[in-house]
Amino acid sequence: MTATQAGTGADPYVLPMPNPDSPVVLAKWISPGNTHPNSRYRDPFWAMAPLIDNPASPCSGSPGGTARRRCRAN
């Protein structure tokens, strides 16, 4: 923190409050090939697809999860 920030009381780690139209996931965190819609704060449920690198893959999921076992079985 610089002396200027300390003098004004500004905290560089405090983020601005989102409004209902703010995206849940910032564009810089979404893979370029990911075409799934990004949720907004107003939505009752937030899609996790923008955070997954390959959301269309039938084998995506946590390691050892049921999706991975199904893919190995095929």
Rank of each mutant, 00 (worst) to 15 (best):
P16L: 07
S57V: 01
H36P: 00
Y13R: 11
H36E: 14
P23S: 02
G33A: 09
Y41P: 00
T4H: 09
Y41V: 13
P58W: 03
S22N: 03
I30Y: 13
Y13C: 13
A49P: 04
P50K: 00
Y13L: 12
T8I: 05
D43L: 10
C59I: 00
D43K: 06
Q5D: 07
T35K: 15
F45R: 13
A49S: 13
G61V: 00
A3I: 12
P63C: 10
A27E: 13
L51S: 06
A49H: 02
A10I: 15
A47N: 11
P63E: 07
T8A: 05
G9W: 09
L26C: 03
G64Q: 08
N54L: 05
K28S: 01
M48G: 14
D53T: 04
G61C: 02
F45C: 15
D53I: 00
A49G: 06
T4S: 09
P37M: 01
Y41E: 04
I52W: 13
S39W: 12
M17T: 13
C59S: 11
W46K: 06
V24R: 06
P44T: 10
I52T: 09
A49F: 05
P32T: 11
P12D: 03
V25N: 02
N54A: 09
S62C: 04
P12V: 09
S62N: 06
P55M: 05
N19I: 06
P18S: 05
L15N: 09
A56H: 01
T35Q: 15
G33R: 06
P18D: 07
L26Q: 07
D53E: 10
V25Q: 05
T35M: 12
V14S: 09
L26I: 02
N38G: 01
G9R: 12
L26K: 08
W46Q: 07
W29A: 02
P63A: 13
Y41N: 02
S22W: 15
T8L: 09
A6F: 00
D21A: 13
P44E: 14
P63Q: 11
S39E: 05
F45G: 14
D11Y: 07
N38E: 10
P50E: 00
C59W: 00
V25F: 15
P44C: 08
L51A: 10
L15Y: 05
N54V: 04
S22K: 04
Y13G: 12
H36L: 06
A6M: 06
G9P: 14
P18T: 06
Y13M: 10
L51G: 05
M48E: 14
P20H: 11
P58L: 08
A3Y: 06
I52H: 08
V14H: 03
D53V: 01
S60E: 05
I30E: 05
P44N: 09
N34I: 10
D21G: 10
G61S: 03
H36M: 08
S60N: 12
Q5V: 02
P18I: 12
T8W: 04
M48H: 09
P23T: 04
M48L: 15
A6R: 08
S22L: 11
D11V: 10
Y13V: 03
T8H: 04
Q5C: 13
V25E: 07
P58E: 05
G61K: 01
V25I: 14
M17C: 07
R42G: 05
S31H: 15
W29K: 03
R40S: 07
A49Q: 05
M17V: 14
P55T: 03
M17S: 06
W46G: 03
P63I: 01
